[in-house]
Simulated assay, not measured.
Amino acid sequence: MKPVKTYEAIGLMSGTSGDGLDIAYCTFWKNDKWHFEIVQAETIAFPSKLAQKLRQSHLLSAEQLALLDVDFGAWMGTQVREFCEKHRLAPLTVCSHGHTVFHQPHLGMTKQIGSGWTLRENAGFPVINDFRSFDVALGGQGAPLAPVGDHLLFPDYEGCLNLGGISNISMVYKGQRIAFDVSPFNLLLNEIAARKGLAYDDRGMLAATGKVNTTFLEQLNAIDFYTSKNAKSLGREEIEGLFLPLLEKHNDSEENLLATLVEHYAVQISTVVQQFFPPANNRLLVTGGGAYHAFFIDQLQKKLGNETTVIVPEPSIVEFKEALIFAFLGVLRINNEINTLAAVTGASRDSCGGVYYP
């Protein structure tokens, strides 16, 4: 019997929430289908000065942004090298999402920083990054990119919901994988939790004590983003232009604002699930930091009823699924296989994205 080829790759994820860098060393192999194992993984908090620069990166001058691009690549490379030395690992490649500064696909532009050459030199391993630009050049949104991983690594679920800074969902509909951003998530919840001196609302305990502000809820549900039928994605620009101004208009308690956001998210996400999932016996995989928001998970399950079961998997998948999938996108890139789906992004064709630094 021919031995199965395995691929060892590291995935790096710096999410919209901007709290740290996820590093996941993963093994992939394929027989009848793709399989994976997350061998080692950890999250490394950004140093305070770097975190501040990343949060304000869209306000920097061109020269300052170019310097941050190099500095961030060097910092990520150093973290990868130390991670590999500590665990005695030697990946085939390091696959980096980068940190999103600008995302305006309607203008043909998306920008993730974290210099590939600098990352490669500091890590000591080949690097693949810039997974989004090719799809944007093909007229796509450049996002979301996870659906290929959902389709090939998690085929036993009717849908995959990721709850990070933004919520996004991936599913098979009429025989085709579709995916899109559904709503904000931790970006707004953490904004309100910060008013009480908290990094986040642990398990949704504050939200659970609040009451829904019906006026605020109606205004949230009326935002134009939710009526768009095209391929769509949410970025910092939409959060700052559409959601934050609305949030700042309401002088309500933090608990009530959090409860209202949870209700809003549960309404929007359950509406999507009920629209696109089969009538019954569905399984929805939920990952990302929001999967630990027990109050939201409970509210979502109530709205979905018995037709769809909400499943929160083991912590390594909850916390590192996105890093796992970026490692997998890199493996597909090495094999020149499709890693970006036009049905998801709205591009003119499927593509194999990512810039390789050998």
Rank of each mutant, 00 (worst) to 15 (best):
G210C: 06
Y226V: 08
G175L: 06
H250A: 06
L189T: 08
Y265C: 03
V262Y: 07
L247D: 04
G175I: 06
A207G: 11
N230P: 01
P184F: 08
A266S: 13
N221S: 12
T209C: 05
S183A: 10
K196G: 07
N190K: 06
A194D: 07
I239T: 14
F180T: 00
K196I: 03
L257V: 09
L247M: 15
F185Y: 14
E237H: 11
N251S: 11
R203C: 09
A207F: 12
I223K: 15
V267Q: 11
Q219T: 05
N256F: 05
L206A: 05
L242P: 01
G197R: 12
Q176P: 05
H250N: 11
L217C: 02
S170G: 06
N190M: 07
I223H: 10
E240N: 12
T227H: 11
D224R: 13
L217V: 07
G210A: 08
E240I: 03
I192V: 14
R195S: 05
N221Q: 13
T214V: 10
A259S: 12
G175V: 06
I192A: 06
L244W: 08
D252M: 04
G210L: 06
L247G: 02
Q176K: 14
N256V: 04
S253R: 04
G204R: 00
F216M: 15
E254M: 11
N256P: 01
N186W: 11
K211L: 07
E248L: 08
Q219D: 12
E248K: 15
D202Q: 13
A179E: 01
S228P: 02
Q219F: 00
G175K: 14
A194K: 15
K196F: 02
L247C: 05
N213H: 11
M205N: 12
N221G: 00
A194W: 09
E191H: 13
L188Q: 02
K174Q: 14
